[in-house]
Design a protein around this nucleic acid. Structure first.
Lengths: 202, 202, 202, 202
DNA sequence: TGTTAACCGAGACGGTACGTCGCGTCTTTCT
DNA sequence: AGAAAGACGCGACGTACCGTCTCGGTTAACA
């Protein structure tokens, strides 16, 4: 049936206040406990919104998480400009390292990743987030190409994926420690590969 | 005092049969439904072992998963030998791509990754698995160094991490499609970076 | 001060159409599902009147039921005239048996009885209905008295109660089957008792 | 599936204590609030037994009520012996009047009647109760027949139904007041009808 | 080869969270 | 300005698992 969900027809006043309270509570609890411990019950209590209202509008924990992630995506971001390709890359990777290691901050981004394993909406939200990141990071690659540091036809997104990949690998796959030093190594490696033309579009 | 778990004092006969049945059932269900849908109830039913017994010996779903992963790790593996560094790398990466994309097979490895987010034992098991992989893959790097393809002092594990990272990034972070083509790109990029000395120890 | 209910000030046009639709839907659903399953939700859907409107005008399910019962009571009835006291009584009782046993018809009268347990308005409506019945049935007793079949001072309502009581007892108390045969037995018994003067007013 | 309900396989110790506590709480709440207001929640709280346990063993409010009624049936009863048929009948009817009118006592029997409208198990329990009553009351009829007060072949159950019916009619159908005086009228009427042979078996 | 400690099967319960339904009360929005 | 329609608070339901407890019955391992 997929009858239209509540909250779309009268999106002002109380409805909006409810939405905001719930999203806020979800983000907090996501950071505090992670997706697995996130319960509708807790969100209801923290937000002061009744449990059944949450079920009506977000259907389940998945929907809640997806909505929270979407809302978290809405802030703008741009890569730092250090003047060199490797420097820019290093800054970007250091930011990744920081956001996934600093206690008190890493919980939310980590939760996003976990959530994506549990629900399609969350996976979509995560995908959207990184698409956005890739697009914004392309600026960094364009600058380097303009400076002649790297080949003209370099695939920007691929550069980013190659630079970030190993960091996430340590975090979530081999489960090894991650330090700023690794960001530097990755920046160097990716720079070398890029200069060598490994990411030239076909 | 964590009183010794059952199943250690008399590890033969029925005890062993029980263990095997439970681990088998867990692996199957892990593959079929993923960690999130894995319930003690289902494992009990599938294995024919009573729920109480499972709780007694494995305490919880986490323990169940960790045990299953440990048992799944016990088979030996060695990187293919194609004669060239890039070739070896490519084969290794293709294997990764296959094991995480082939329907009917990808479920278990994926479940391992997810499980690690949910329980420390599972995280440890995953870590152990990849430590083993890195150690075995070192052979590939040693061969290349012996052939003079890459610098002597190359950090083998770091090579592997850099090569695999981007693939996992696509799979679990940016949630983009993963194809054999990506394995080739990564192999090439890592080869370039390695030759350029990006992974020389310190 | 019970603020005047809506629908009393402007009882024409749309207001009246709404009332009729709601009452009609209530009667239908009462017959189809019984009081217990009767929900404002269902009445709203069936009648095409918004739930809030129903709440405004009938306050609750009770009010709905009471209104429906009142409207159902408004048809006129008179006992059959067979020429004899016992014959008249038998006809009346057969009518009772029929109206409470015929599938497709028994639901509404049964629902009235049940409803009376749940709400005072419904109980009042039911009481009113039977008061009316008793008054009309008095004609039957008067005829018999005029014919000299039974004592002059016979309490008509009491005759009816005694005749009908056992049938309802089977239906709703001892929960035994009810057939036309029982109507005959009751008619005979009541006739005997009446002739013997058991129902002479004090 | 109708898999056997819990509480049947190990009917001693804790299981029995649980059962008793729940039945007791149900009876109390039934008397205090009536069937309609009876909730599993309240029974759980009052009995100290967990809600899910109640659901497991009694499935729903219906089952709860039925069990309570069955247990209430288990006490033995015998009609008083006054020496005369009409006297015995009068005593019996006075008992009915009392049990359905005395505040603080009438609630439970009334609730039984209402419950029977709501669930088959409750209806069955009620039927069982009255079958038992009819059987026990037969003694009264037998005594009268032995004394030669009434015909030999009198159908005892039918006598009881005819005597009680009008009282219940007042209570639950026409919703009129019920007093001890009505018991006397009914006893007299039924005595007259019985003596006249109205309840002789076929 | 017995014994006996260890393990397992089985039933029941307390407990947490879920998702659903229905009621009755606001309150936004639209006419 | 006022009603209709939308959203919410609230209470209860029934379900699914979890983890615990208490029996009693087997059985592996050791004397």
């Amino acid at each position: 049936l997929a009858t239209e969900l509540p909250g779309t027809r009268r999106p002002g006043g109380r409805t909006e206040r409810t939405r905001a309270a719930v999203v806020q509570a979800t983000l907090e609890l996501l950071a505090e406990r992670g997706v697995t411990q996130l319960t509708v019950e807790a969100v209801a209590e923290r937000s002061g919104v009744h449990r059944s209202t949450i079920h009506r509008r977000w259907a389940s924990v998945d929907g809640l998480v997806a909505a929270a992630l979407r809302s978290a995506t809405e802030h703008h971001w741009a890569p730092a400009d250090t003047g060199t390709f490797e420097g820019d890359l290093r800054e970007l990777l250091l930011e990744v390292v920081r956001s996934f290691t600093e206690p008190g901050h890493r919980e939310l981004p980590t939760a996003s990743v976990v959530a994506a394993f549990h629900s399609q909406p969350a996976a979509d939200a995560l995908h959207g987030f990184y698409q956005d990141r890739h697009a914004r990071a392309a600026a960094l690659v364009a600058r380097a190409a303009a400076r002649g540091e790297i080949p003209e036809a370099t695939d920007a997104a691929e550069v980013i994926r190659n630079a970030c990949g190993p960091l996430f690998y340590r975090l979530f796959i081999s489960r090894e420690p991650l330090t700023p030093g690794h960001a530097r190594t990755c920046a160097a490696a990716t720079t070398a590969a890029t200069r060598a033309g490994a990411f030239e579009a076909r």
